[in-house]
């Protein structure tokens, strides 16, 4: 093959390992966006990713970076410890909805409130994937899960929690955006947001938070295609996309 014909290569920030993710799952997409962003800002050898408890717990097998696995919900605290020791490295806290908004709510809010110079990538797929489809803090009203078998009942368990909106009440974060990866156009926007969030950290600007709406076809009980449609029709109206804060603007 001539070099002229090479129109795509795998990111240098990714390993050769095949992921364990289910068909239609968007974790792999988000991993790739992080990896490409690191390539593009020249930080492949200077990044540390914190793996959450959840489906992405093995993220360090897929990203060719330093990797640290945190206890459930504690990723922002672990990220804080690492970042304070290595302020010149990029520290990425990669978290799911249970990790970030249920068990780790305290760590989430306080790392954001301190304005730790880290990047939090929040993958919101409205369900607990790894443990087999239980209710998440972001599960939609009426959504069936293994612990809300007749559908989430807000009168009983409250409404889903909106992370960006909560983070946006705090003073220190510099960048907060919600994106989605249910189609190529939105994936491109997600890429821009993630890259910006990482660049902010590289430039020492402070805490950046990117929420990525994601799918879990297996636990939603939908085909991959149907799951993208469900995300668009059900999640986006409740979780509006867009920039909540950009201190540069």
């Amino acid at each position: 093959m001539n070099n002229e014909e090479l129109i795509y290569t795998k990111s240098k920030s990714m390993t050769q390992r095949e992921t364990h993710y289910c068909p239609g799952c968007t974790h792999g997409v988000v991993h790739k966006l992080i990896a490409e962003s690191l390539d593009e800002i020249g930080m492949v050898d200077n990044a540390i990713v914190i793996a959450p408890v959840g489906c992405a717990v093995l993220i360090y097998d897929y990203l060719a970076l330093d990797g640290v696995e945190a206890a459930h919900g504690r990723a922002p605290a672990v990220a804080t410890g690492i970042k304070r020791v290595h302020p010149d490295k990029l520290v990425i806290s990669y978290q799911g909805d249970g990790d970030l908004l249920a068990i780790g709510m305290g760590e989430t809010i306080h790392a954001a409130n301190r304005g730790e110079n880290i990047t939090v990538i929040f993958v919101n797929n409205a369900i607990y994937g790894m443990t087999g489809g239980q209710m998440a803090p972001t599960t939609m009203p009426g959504q069936k899960t293994t612990t809300t078998q007749s559908g989430r009942e807000p009168d009983d368990v409250g409404m889903p929690i909106r992370a960006c909106e909560i983070i946006n009440t705090l003073d220190r974060p510099v960048y907060i955006e919600r994106v989605s990866c249910h189609n190529p156009a939105n994936i491109n926007k997600a890429k821009k947001a993630i890259k910006k969030a990482l660049l902010n950290q590289k430039e020492g600007k402070g805490y950046s938070f990117v929420e990525v709406l994601a799918t879990c076809p297996t636990n939603w009980g939908l085909t991959p295609k149907k799951s993208y449609e469900w995300l668009e029709s059900t999640m986006i109206p409740y979780y509006p996309l867009g920039v909540f804060r950009d201190k540069e603007e």
């Binding site: 690492i82 304070r84 809010i109």
Partner: peptide, 26 residues
């Protein structure tokens, strides 16, 4: 050095985890 009054004991020990993973005495 760095002192952080953490939001909880669980956060504090996990900050120690991070600093120690980063090679520092913590």
């Amino acid at each position: 050095g760095t002192f952080i009054q953490a939001e909880s004991e669980t956060a504090a020990i996990n900050m120690v985890f991070g600093a120690s993973a980063a090679g520092a005495r913590s």
